[in-house]
Amino acid sequence: MKHAEIEEITILPGRKKDGEAEDFGSIVITLGETISIVGPTGSGKSAFINDIEMFAQHDTVTGRTILVNGEHPPEEYVRDPSKKPIASITQNTQCLADLLVKNFLEMHARARKMVDCEVIQKTIDLANEFTGEKILPGMKVTELSGGQTRALMIADATLISNTPIILLDEIENAGIFKDRVIECVKRFRKAVVFVTHDPLIALLSDKRIVMKNGAVEKVLTPKEEEKPILKRIMLMDKRMDVIREKIRQGESICD
């Protein structure tokens, strides 16, 4: 199976923290979909996406099994990062290399044996869609802010790794435009899974998976009644962005 051939992944149930069987039939994530995982701290959100990341085969704490296009995935998906169809970005993921943004991306493109020299600039442009603090090719990756780093990694996953599935574990505090990430996911036909406490992301998602006690408690799809509320939250979010930017620029928020 090549990346390009992946259409969907299926999550089969395991067991709750207390050892009882998890009670959902199966969860299918299709390319182009945005999924959010919600639930209190310790409820098993990270464990859930870890299962996806390592294509659990009944061999993790949760006992879940992950299928790709309905089949058991090949071993190289987990063992060789360049063959892995999943990019995972968390609050902890860092770029440590002492390199300029453009050299960093070049290093990755070279490792991938990519010949398209435009991909570097395209990746930086895409990253700049996700963040308000402009990323320049000549900046050092180690000096980027949390938001810029996350934005660059998502763009890198989209265009250079070109992985069909992107996992984002609680990146909301990083200050990126999540609605644009979700829009980008649709544009490039990726599946993205957010672990999130952010109401906007949760409401914008195609599915919300609710975790409790180490297990999937339920799977919600957005209701028609939620839509007007979502609109209001999006407006509020835009206004928060404006205020945040004003404060950053040292302006008064009343101007």
Binding site: P81, A87, T93, Q94, L96, A97, F104, H108, A111, D156
Partner: peptide, 11 residues
């Protein structure tokens, strides 16, 4: 590997 970027992992 949980701490570094995909690019650096591959390299």
């Amino acid at each position: 590997i949980d701490l570094i970027s995909q690019a650096e992992r591959e390299v």
